[in-house]
Nucleic acid binder design. Structure first.
Lengths: 219, 219
DNA sequence: ATAGGATAAATTATCTATAATTTTATGAGG
DNA sequence: CCTCATAAAATTATAGATAATTTATCCTAT
């Protein structure tokens, strides 16, 4: 993992805290005391405050003036909201990306899917899953949209980790394959529809019992 | 205009700069020097930096580590991107809001539309237009989605102001009325379709000549 | 027991100073 | 003229101090 040489302290703190929050190392509602974080990182509290502003922008923390910062909570409603937003935005991105998807990109995406299948833990799996989505969507060339999707994806990962930590399994990802097939066949509508359904799966209660049909297992 | 008593300096600076950027008082690409802004507001530069982080989150400025902050530019591609994202997200919000739209809300929205018709300048008009959209979408009860839409709306307002400043006219807003009619008739699909088309209008080149059919005039 | 007020402690927000980095200006050489 | 090196100036990022606000604790009265 290479850290850009120009990374400021504030950016570094923000990155590390984001990772920690997403991985579940910080409980929803937990207070983030700027002085304590500063002490942990061996810095002044001022870049910590700047890091907080960044985390807030990502939706990972909530703050009130003069009352501090807490790790953002999530309710089932929020999980569902994020899923819905992802479905809307990822479909939009896919539609714009589709004309630019090369065989090479699709092959890489397939490779990422394979990596997800082989993943030994939920973090590796999520990483492969994110790579898959990014590979397919990045060619849309819409930076603001991609940034929004990234933030939503981080939120999803957080939900996923918190819901799946105890019941992790590494399944074959049928939806990913279906999306790839459709894209290879030039059938963007099908790809978009499968993607939307697949992404919205994360809005399902995390502990839903498997139903009789194969549930999509990645978001 | 009441300013919350608890508004911090950083929030205030952020708000004022955002308003200034949106209104076109700061050109795209313009450098925002933290010390100069601090001097203008009579504060230290530290809350200015925090304000910058907030503005960045809103997409109104861009920053590079150690190289400062500039007012975000916009290309036609970005204008179009914002329009597309708005269409996707506002339609999503409207679908979720629709079951909660009361007659009172629809009446207020109609009143906002009327205010827009009477607006004497583009700022008043945009304010009424924003109120219209907010009234219809807020009942979706999805805070993250509404925040995203707000940021996109601010970006749209900025584009609008920069494109319309010299050719402002106060037209009747047929799309707003069509949306209201459809909603009153319980026809959510039509409302959503009109909304999407209407919102995407902002992706049109701002100086497009009026065509033979009435162009939607609000976004 | 509870409620209210006072005080202390903790925390947040901003200020000032300093260090680090980038940008600009200047001069020398080809 | 251009290029390069150096110095100076400007700017950004952070540290440590200070001021303001909130929270916690203690005491008194009912």
């Amino acid at each position: 993992m290479t850290t850009p040489k120009t990374e400021t302290i504030a950016v570094r703190i923000s990155r590390i805290l984001a990772e920690r929050i997403i991985a579940g190392g910080m409980q929803a509602g937990m207070r983030l005391a700027q002085d304590h974080i500063a002490e942990e990182f061996g810095t002044s509290h001022v870049p910590v405050r700047e890091a907080f502003r960044r985390l807030e922008a990502q939706g990972l923390v909530v703050s009130e003036p003069r009352r501090g910062v807490r790790v953002a909570g999530f309710t089932m409603a929020e999980v569902k909201e994020v899923a819905e937003m992802r479905a809307a935005l990822e479909v939009l991105a896919l539609r714009h990306a589709a004309p630019h998807l090369t065989r090479s990109i699709l092959d890489q995406a397939e490779e990422a899917n394979r990596a997800g299948d082989k993943a030994g833990d939920v973090q590796s799996w999520e990483e492969a899953n994110r790579a898959f989505h990014r590979l397919l969507l990045a060619p849309c060339g819409m930076p603001r949209l991609l940034k929004s999707i990234d933030d939503l994806h981080a939120a999803s990962a957080r939900f996923l980790f918190s819901g799946w930590r105890a019941e992790w399994e590494a399944p074959t990802d049928r939806d990913h394959l279906a999306i790839l097939s459709a894209l290879r066949a030039g059938d963007i509508e099908t790809a978009a529809a499968v993607l939307a359904r697949h992404v919205q799966w994360v809005g399902q209660p995390p502990r839903t019992k498997p139903v009789r049909q194969p549930l999509p297992r990645s978001a």
